[in-house]
């Protein structure tokens, strides 16, 4: 394995909420290779978002470390872009203005030469076309469907050529058909841009279809329970979801989630209720 781009070591996160001390993340270790697509799955509350937000620099760690290219992170940086589930677009800006938002910021303006400006304009155009947004380039976000809005959010995140793309259930609010289209789009883009992707989802099928590796997390306290390598070639297509390897892995991960979620169904009780219907 080439040297990892992200190194997570003994990562810990505690929250103090109403006097109680919640351990959201305990002793998490993970290496992610450049260009790798890694998905995080697990029962709700197992620390997926927390892990992602620490890597994004939006949340400080309580212990352990996260390094990017060997440098410990301290806060957000333009090398790590984030895509949220919703509410992150700027409704007062058009699609194009949203995508080029980062150009207005000092970090990008200070180093601009004329050719930088030119290439930025070219890149914005390319992203608009790549994401299929040409016909809505001048529309405002609230005129777009949920799927189109997420395309804008992804394009905006990619605009500054981040090396790492962090996504927290980005397709969680979309319908199944739109989600499949988005899967192929994000795979295509991540290969094209050679972006490393860390992707949180609660949909196991999505997790397997997108990833090189699926990280299974478990709650109380939040930790990494298993890491599964996906036995599929890099170029994915929807038919692979029917292959035995895919189905077996899906079963295995689902069982893992069920085991750790602590939400067992009491079948005995259900059965008794079925036999004696309430009067």
């Amino acid at each position: 394995m080439t040297s990892p781009i992200i190194q997570i070591r003994q990562l810990q996160k505690r929250f103090a909420a109403n006097g109680a001390d919640i351990v959201a993340l305990q002793d998490a270790d993970l290496d992610i290779a450049p260009g790798e697509f890694v998905t995080l799955v697990g029962a709700s509350g197992c620390g997926k978002s927390t892990l992602l937000r620490i890597v994004g620099g939006l949340e400080p760690a309580s212990g352990g470390s996260v390094s990017v290219d060997g440098v410990p992170i301290a806060g957000p940086g333009i090398d790590r872009a984030m895509v949220f589930q919703h509410y992150s677009l700027y409704p007062w800006l058009t699609v194009t203005e949203n995508i080029t938002f980062c150009r207005q910021l000092k970090v990008h303006r200070d180093v601009s030469t004329l050719s930088d400006v030119e290439s930025a304009e070219g890149r914005a155009d390319a992203l608009v076309r790549l994401m299929g947004l040409s016909h809505v380039a001048d529309a405002y976000p609230n005129q777009l469907s949920g799927g189109m809005q997420q395309r804008v959010a992804i394009a905006r995140a990619l605009m500054a050529r981040p090396r790492i793309l962090l996504m927290d259930e980005p397709f969680g609010a979309l319908d199944a058909q739109t989600r499949e289209v988005m899967h192929d789009l994000i795979l295509h883009v991540s290969i094209l841009e050679k972006t490393t992707v860390l992707f949180v989802t609660h949909d196991v099928e999505e997790a397997i279809y997108l990833a090189h590796r699926v990280v299974l997390m478990a709650p109380r306290p939040g930790h990494i329970a298993a890491v599964h390598t996906v036995p599929l070639q890099d170029h994915r297509d929807q038919d692979m979801k029917q292959t035995p390897g895919f189905i077996a892995l899906k079963k295995q991960i689902l069982a893992g989630i069920r085991e750790t979620s602590g939400m067992q169904t009491n079948y005995e009780l259900l059965e008794r209720l079925g036999q004696n219907p309430a009067p």
Binding site: G56, G57, L58, P76, G77, I78, R80, A81, M82, F84, H86, Y87, S88, L89, Y90, P91, W92, F101, C102, Q104, L105, K106, V107, H108, A153, R156, A157, A160, L166
Partner: peptide, 24 residues
């Protein structure tokens, strides 16, 4: 989310106030 998106795009504190919070 609007604020954090700006943070990950490299906005500093003043930029977040002037370019995100105010217009929003």
């Amino acid at each position: 989310e609007q604020i954090e998106a700006a943070q990950t795009m490299g906005a500093d504190r003043d930029e977040i106030v002037m370019r995100v919070i105010m217009p929003s």
